[in-house]
Structures are given as C-alpha cells and as structure tokens.
Write a protein that binds this DNA or RNA. Structure first.
Lengths: 142, 142
DNA sequence: TCGAAACCATACGTACACGAATAAATCGTG
DNA sequence: CACGATTTATTCGTGTACGTATGGTTTCGA
C-alpha cells in the first residue's frame, strides 16, 4: 500500500498519445508521398500558397503554424526544388513575396487526391461517426 | 463550377490538426517543466525506467515509441545530467543496462504531480466527458 | 524629422524523428 | 558445431521545431 505509484500511466497521457498519433500520421504521409519527397509541412506551405496566391514568408508561417525560424528552412528547400519562387514586394521592401511556380501549382493540383487519401487512411481505424466526433474535439485542442 | 477547388481544407486535415495539437501539448509541457529542463521524451524515458527498474536502451525505446537513433540522444543527455546511469549487461555484452540514479528517482517522484497537472491543462478545453471520449479515440490512432 | 516601435528575415544552438549504414554480439537451425 | 539471421547500439544525413540574438526596413509619433 505504502509505496504505491500515484497511478500515472504514461500510455494514458494526452501528450504521449498525441506524440504517437502524430508520428503515425507523419509516417503514413511520407509513405504516400515518397515518390514526390514532400513532408507534411512542405505540403502545408504549398497548399496555402495555392489557396492564397502570394504571401510573405512570416505570414505563410502563421497560416501554417510554423515559427519564422522553421518556415525559413521549409521555404528554402522548396525554392531549391523550384516549386516556389520569391520576388521582392514592391510596396513593402521588407518582405519577400512567395509564389508557387508553374511546376509547384501543377504538383499541388496533382496531389490533392493523394493528400485526401492520406487523411482517409490516417482516420481509418475509426468509424465515420467516430471520425467526425474526433475531428471536432481535436480542432478544439489545436 | 469548373475551376472549383477539390474542397481540400488544410485546417480540417487530421495530420495538420495532430501536428498543431502536438505542438500545443509540447509547449505546455516545456512551460511547466522549465525549471527542470525536461522534454516530453526525456520524461517518458524517466517514467518508464522508474516503472520497470532496469532496461536496455532499445527496449526502453520501444516502450516509449522512440527510434534507436532517437533514444540514443535522449539517453545521452540524461546520463550527462546524472539522472540515468548505464552499466554493461554481464549476460549480453551488446547491451547497456539503464537505471535511474538516486537523483533521477527522486526527480521522477517529485514530478508525477506536475506531469499530471500538465495533462489536465492540455485537456482543459474539453469537458470531462469529452475528454474521456477523445482519449479513447486517440488511443486507437496511436 | 528623427528616433522608437513594429515587422521581417536570417543565423545559431538544442532537441526530437527517422532512414540508412556499420559493427559487434547473440541466437537459431541445420 | 557452424553459419546465416537477428538484435543491439552508434553514426551520418535530412528535416522539423523553437528560443534567442542580430540586423535590416518601414511606419508612427513626439
């Protein structure tokens, strides 16, 4: 009785479970995107640029939940691969405006279906109604 | 109609939401553990060693969902801080047996309450019944 | 108008995360 | 018993993730 553990089970903690679920989601994403060598964050950046047209680097970071220090590396790798191009903003010379290149636009258009498939696969352990409940709750924790 | 987007909303994708929820959980953890400079993975390793007594490095990695390459760095940092010690396994000379030091044991005992508080705080946006539902579903995705 | 404040981008350091390659020790099966 | 497969641990490379510091540009206000 005396030395009993306070009932702290690592496997039942929200942080640990989120970490593992995120690992699994990332793994499924990379497997499906292997051919195109895109990471989840790179995909997020491409999707947002596809949706918004042109954005500054930090603004894109805010829309995709990435630190300025983090988005910097993501953008650099995408520019190197010629999926994104940067131009100076004529109105505000602090900023570098980012846009999808033609190749980038074409790639995003092509991969929407793949990305949707990844989301379906990631959620597949749950029934459709469970998925709806889960996503709703998860949004409130994000 | 023609050029309509395929209805792919980044903010509604499971992978993106898991990434953001994990970021938030990590951030809350680090804030509460700032004084002790412990990361979520370091805490997981310490908790498992507290629970199991002695483990090889890879075994501990499997119990905490970490790659051999990842656990290596985690353990190295904890050994440096004298929270964990390693000894050679006499039966199997490939292995290094890991144990908590006295300081490590004391630290874990002290921080169980803090860790439980972090889990509560992370889940606080949800009602108690929602928390139960969410954790149950999340376990099936981990 | 000139300095402060706000904003933007980069660099460095630390820490996960994992694939791939390596090397040593052990195990299993013929 | 021998030899191939497996297990253990390390190292290297790439890619997030973020705090902090630095320096540049613009805008605002005294």
């Amino acid at each position: 009785m005396a030395g009993d553990r306070p009932g702290y089970e690592l496997e039942a903690q929200i942080g640990h479970l989120l970490r593992r679920a995120h690992q699994r989601a990332t793994s499924l994403f990379l497997a499906s995107m292997q051919e195109h060598q895109l990471t989840p964050t790179q995909w997020a950046a491409l999707v947002k640029l596809h949706e918004q047209g042109a954005l500054s680097q930090n603004h894109l970071g805010r829309l995709t939940a990435m630190d300025p220090a983090t988005i910097q590396g993501v953008i650099r790798r995408l520019v190197t691969r010629d999926l994104i191009c940067r131009a100076e903003d004529l109105n505000d010379r602090r900023r570098a405006v980012l846009r999808l290149t033609e190749a980038g636009t074409a790639l995003v258009d092509q991969l929407f279906a793949t990305a949707a498939g990844i989301s379906r696969e990631t959620l597949s352990p749950l029934s459709p109604s469970e998925q709806a409940v889960f996503l709703k709750l998860l949004q409130r924790l994000a």
